[in-house]
Write a protein that binds this DNA or RNA. Structure first.
Length: 370
RNA sequence: GGAGGGGUAGCGAAGUGGUCAAACGCGGCAGACUGUAAAUCUGUUCCUUCGGGUUCAAUGGUUCAAAUCCAUUCCCCUCCA
């Protein structure tokens, strides 16, 4: 079946809803860990379950190159292949392809995008149709349209033709999309240009996708601009479909997103930070490699209920990170993901209670204190 | 006892008369990271009151100038006896 969004409570523009999927129903706002290569780096599916993670991302481009979509199809689909029985969302590969395309003018053509494999340098060509076909074979629950994610800033002229092409690509993807068990999301682009965001959103909505994402954010713009990009997009999106802010996963940005009506977030931030020895705490981000934690025998965040915080100290994790033991990365990945998942859990409660704004203000005050 | 090689910043290792406070790597200390080309990348790492001061095993010497040349001493390694 296709996913279904059920709105259960609003507080201002903030929404508490339920996402009904092939693999269970999950409350939104939701934070979705990223597992690019069919694994959330360093974590097992059991560990994901333990922190109440639900939807996980995988990446079309990476799995297309390795091991190949046919291999995953022969394995019985992504869920079976990676032993994950929760919902899986596949990103289209657009984000990767555009960072790999050397010459924007020459490599990005109407038909698709020319680029070179980051593994062996061979020439590849990805099209909207191919991206959708690969995602069909991967058998994810949610597929993403193949879009162009331009850097920041680009000229109005460039953004205009890019947005128009992204829309044509969305329609081409829709036309070849065949998997009845897979939902397909459209993506709103348009950079910081209000009229392009409006146009992109309205035209994308006309295609009647199963959900809508806001793309092209957190690509180097300042925070204020990013929030405006959301504002300029979201007001044209229908209430009865989920709204997904792609690639955003800073605690503050999640709060700002929810405040504007976003339901879904994904980000590499928590897991990458973890591998680089950083941890989210209620008092801001900390670097566990810092000397000051050498003999700090307290948990990373004493308000946290995760496995890492319940059993291990900063001093021990610092030791692991300094000694380059992978268990440190794993513990911090568990913690950082749980931190964001707990954040959205508390957000949902506050929406139910009509106190989202207070919750946000209070969280931000403590978080910024550091 | 004989022959040879070597001692350079916390460690390893370049440098063999001036452009050397001394490449590079590691280690140390910090910073960055937002649809994962990222368990990665960047900065910094003798002391300093930022004028300068003190370094290349030690001491003495040659020179306008020495980590670099000479003498002596101490230590390490290899081979032969």
């Amino acid at each position: 079946m296709k996913i279904k969004y059920e709105l259960i409570k609003k507080d201002g523009k903030a929404r508490h809803g339920i996402l009904h999927t092939n693999y269970g129903s999950y409350e939104t706002p939701i934070f979705m860990p990223v597992g690019t290569q069919a694994t959330v780096k360093t974590l097992s599916p059991e560990e994901l379950k333990e922190i109440h993670s639900a939807v996980v991302l995988a990446n079309t481009y990476h799995l297309w190159l390795r091991p190949g979509e046919d291999t995953i199809m022969h394995a019985g689909g992504l869920h079976k292949f990676m032993n994950y029985d929760g919902p899986i969302l596949t990103d289209s590969g657009g984000f990767q392809v555009f960072s790999l395309a050397r010459n924007k003018k020459k490599d990005i053509v109407e038909e698709g995008v020319h680029f070179k494999s980051h593994i062996d340098g061979r020439k590849l060509f990805l099209t909207p149709e191919l991206s959708i076909q690969i995602q069909n074979k991967l058998d994810s629950d949610i597929a993403m349209s193949f879009d162009e994610c331009p850097p920041y800033p680009v000229s109005y002229e460039y953004m205009k033709q890019s947005v128009e092409r992204t829309l044509r690509w969305a329609k081409r993807g829709l036309a070849v999309h065949q998997n009845e068990n897979q939902s397909l999301f459209g993506i709103v682009q348009g950079g910081e240009f209000e009229d392009l965001r409006k146009w992109s959103a309205e035209e994308t909505v006309k295609c009647n996708f199963d959900g809508y994402s806001i793309g092209g954010t957190s690509v180097g713009e300042d925070k204020k601009t990013m929030y405006e990009m959301i504002d300029h997009s979201i007001k044209y999106l229908p209430e009865d479909k989920p709204r997904y802010l792609m690639g955003v996963g800073d605690p503050i940005d999640i709060l700002e997103g929810v405040e504007r009506g976003i339901d879904m977030f994904d980000c590499v931030h928590p897991t990458r930070l973890a591998r680089h020895a950083h941890a989210f705490t209620r008092n801001g981000k900390i670097n566990l490699k810092n000397l000051k934690y050498k003999e700090d025998f307290t948990p990373v965040d004493d308000t946290c209920d995760c496995y890492c915080c319940k059993h291990y100290t900063k001093a021990y994790i610092r030791h692991l990170m300094v000694a380059e033991e992978t268990f440190g990365s794993r513990l911090l990945s568990i913690h950082n993901l749980r931190f964001l998942i707990r954040l959205v859990e508390e957000i949902r409660t506050s929406i139910d209670e009509g106190t989202f704004q207070e919750y946000k203000n209070q969280f931000m005050e403590t978080y910024k204190k550091k």
